[in-house]
């Protein structure tokens, strides 16, 4: 419980509108230096590789090549779907965690966090076992006589979506939970008392009030989805191409680092644009 509360608090911190004073800035200095030297500078160098060699051709290719536009679009679509499903599935879970009695809340947190603490690889392999042609689902349906030939569930976009939603849903649930927890229940009572049927209470009051959490969670899930690698690589069976898979291919197989750097820069740019758009969407709640 404390761990989850801490997690929720850190999300709150990350997405809150803090105004740190100078001493707090100093406290952040080691982290900033760490990220600068071990992350920002190497990444920047990687992305500037093409320019360092005096050519912008890799960038031109990354921004105009048919393959790359298609892959970026494909990645964008998958990230959008993952975000949508994380919302549809994660929102009720966050609500359950908010309203459940303490024992159930504890159990609920456990269920959300256990997979969170498990390696992505293990979880992804678990899907292989479940969805395979001789996996649990197919064996059950076959032995029950419901189907005669195994269903092809693995190695498809739906399988990738399933695996990614499974991995990323906690990133949606925690920010939403932390917002839901702070909603004054009197507002719900007030809305009901003023004549709103339950669905109106949800649409007109509860949902808008949780929107900051929803946007935080969605941003997090979307950004993580854009760069996802392991799950699409394993569950996609090479049939679902995301930009990270392509970057890996250019780094490891083709040794074309200039182009990989350009692609990474494009991924970063698309991600930043998405982040900016969501930030802009969140501006609405500045007034309240």
């Amino acid at each position: 419980m404390t761990a989850s509360a801490g997690l929720a608090a850190s999300f709150r911190y990350t997405f809150g509108r803090g105004n740190p004073n100078r001493r707090q800035v100093l406290l952040g200095l080691p982290t900033v230096l760490f990220l600068l030297f071990l992350f920002a500078i190497p990444v920047a160098r990687f992305m500037l590789l093409p320019i360092a060699d005096g050519t912008i051709e890799p960038y031109v290719k990354a921004l105009t090549g048919e393959l790359f536009l298609l892959v970026i679009w494909n990645t964008f679509k998958i990230a959008a779907y993952v975000t949508l499903f994380s919302f549809l599935l994660g929102y009720p879970v966050a609500y359950f965690l908010t309203v459940a009695p303490p024992v159930w809340r504890l159990i609920g947190f456990f269920c959300v966090l256990i997979p969170f603490w498990t390696s992505i690889l293990v979880r992804t392999y678990a899907w292989l076992v479940i969805l395979g042609r001789r996996g649990i689902i197919n064996e059950t349906l076959l032995s029950a006589g419901i189907i005669e030939t195994p269903l092809a569930m693995l190695h498809s976009t739906p399988a990738v979506l399933l695996g990614m939603v499974h991995v990323l849903m906690p990133f949606f649930i925690f920010p939403v939970y932390s917002v839901m927890q702070r909603i004054d229940t009197n507002l719900i009572s007030a809305a009901r008392g003023l004549g709103a049927p339950d669905w109106r209470v949800f649409l007109s009051v509860y949902l808008p009030l949780t929107l900051p959490g929803v946007l935080s969670g969605a941003t997090l899930v979307f950004i993580l989805s854009m760069g996802f690698f392991i799950t699409p690589a394993l569950l996609g069976g090479g049939r679902v191409t995301m930009i990270s898979v392509l970057i890996e291919q250019y780094v490891n197989t083709f040794l074309d680092w200039q182009f990989a750097g350009a692609l990474s820069a494009v991924l970063l740019a698309v991600t930043l644009i998405a982040y900016g758009l969501m930030k802009w969407a969140m501006k609405g709640d500045k007034k309240w």
Binding site: E66, L67, L70, V71, N74, T157, G238, R239, V240, T241, L246, Q249
Partner: peptide, 8 residues
């Protein structure tokens, strides 16, 4: 890669 995308 382009060919594979067209067969997704």
């Amino acid at each position: 890669n382009l060919w594979k995308l067209s067969h997704q």
